[in-house]
């Protein structure tokens, strides 16, 4: 088990290296020097050269990468070009916000999708199945920022059920914190729920046609018992895989939602860094996102082998 995990992580190592190399190479794609891009056309050539030298932007790519990697391995991701704060501090401040939203969105999606899928899979082709199928088809086609705007219009602007934007830390006031994350979490979950429902429904229908389900039914178990205790577990690996991919996507992909609801999360940090061409920060954010992608991938494998012993490898 541990060996399989170590093997897996070893395979993911090249991905991490390539992602970080590619981010380092962004500097070379820039027309002109980064110092010029950051300071603007009015800055003196001396100031531009000083900034380039200070952050090592004028070194060749291999040297830049090795120096960044050396520092990164000791936990130093450099400092922001714009406000000189250490990148690790900036990320440390923002990560909990994004993490909370992503986790809540994921939990909400699973909590809604699993019962819904079980309900429609019990009677495929029935009225509920057709209604849910039409609804998932439609929701799948709404961009998440459109969902967010509709929700904001209905629940915040018009009826003031939730605040329009902003953030209150959980430590300050748990209730206010939850009120502020509600709309972003709903918007994100609404994009994931249809995918989860469809995948689990399909897998459940496949499982429900197998012999052991017939056996369970002939033993006289009720439909809920058969669905929950016999069918759900063998039908869940795809859902777990997809939920894992969604988790990776949510940690890096809440950019729009964070910008729309003015949440101080990782996505917000990324957009700010990109507007300001703050390369060390961009690099740090990409590293965190890639690391979470790798971690989630390993976690999904572990979970799937816990669910289905047949996928365990020696």
């Amino acid at each position: 088990m541990t060996r399989a995990l170590a093997h897996k992580l070893l395979q993911l190592l090249p991905v991490l290296v390539l992602v970080t190399v590619a981010t380092t190479a962004l500097v070379d794609l820039m027309p002109g020097s980064p110092g010029r891009a950051i300071l603007g056309p009015d800055a003196s050539p001396e100031a531009v050269a000083a900034l380039d030298a200070q952050h090592g932007f004028d070194d060749p790519l291999p040297q830049r990468y090795l120096s960044w990697l050396g520092h990164a391995l000791t936990g130093d991701l450099g400092s922001s070009v714009s406000n000189r704060q250490p990148v690790t501090d900036l990320i440390g401040e923002r990560l909990p916000v994004t993490f909370e939203i992503a986790l809540l969105a994921l939990l909400l999606s699973v909590a809604v999708a699993v019962p819904l899928a079980l309900w429609v899979a019990a009677r495929p082709g029935g009225l509920a199945d057709r209604v849910v199928s039409a609804l998932t088809s439609a929701t799948l086609s709404i961009p998440s920022f459109a969902v967010a705007l509709v929700l904001a219009y209905l629940l915040a602007v018009n009826t003031h059920v939730f605040p329009v934007s902003g953030w209150v830390p959980f430590e300050d006031s748990p209730a206010d914190n939850l009120r502020h994350v509600a709309l972003p979490v709903f918007s994100l979950a609404l994009a994931e729920i249809p995918i989860f429902v469809r995948i689990l429904r399909g897998d459940l229908l496949t499982v429900l046609r197998q012999d052991f389900i017939l056996t369970a039914r002939t033993k006289g178990f009720s439909t809920p018992h058969v669905l929950l205790r016999h069918a759900l577990r063998p039908a869940s690996p795809s859902l777990v895989t997809l939920a894992g991919l969604a988790a990776g996507r949510l940690i890096g992909g809440t950019v729009i939602i964070e910008s729309l609801f003015a949440l101080p999360g990782l996505g917000n940090l990324a957009t700010q860094a990109i507007y300001g061409k703050d390369l060390p920060v961009i690099q740090g954010v990409v590293l965190v996102v890639a690391l979470s992608y790798v971690a989630v991938n390993a976690l999904v494998d572990l979970l799937n082998s816990a669910i289905d012993p047949r996928t365990r490898t020696a």
């Binding site: 399989a4 897996k8 395979q11 993911l12 495929p124 082709g125 029935g126 199945d129 057709r130 209604v131 199928s133 039409a134 088809s137 469809r198 995948i199 429904r201 399909g202 897998d203 229908l205 496949t206 690996p237 795809s238 895989t241 997809l242 894992g244 991919l245 991938n297 999904v300 494998d301 799937n304 490898t313």
Partner: peptide, 29 residues
């Protein structure tokens, strides 16, 4: 194994292709 995990995710929606349109109720299952 990651490739296989992702290809599972790729392959999985195939089951959905037949269920996507609601008027196919009879044949859905």
């Amino acid at each position: 194994t990651m490739a296989s995990a992702v290809s599972a995710a790729l392959a999985a929606p195939a089951d959905l292709a037949g269920t996507a349109v609601p008027d196919d109720s009879a044949g859905a299952a």
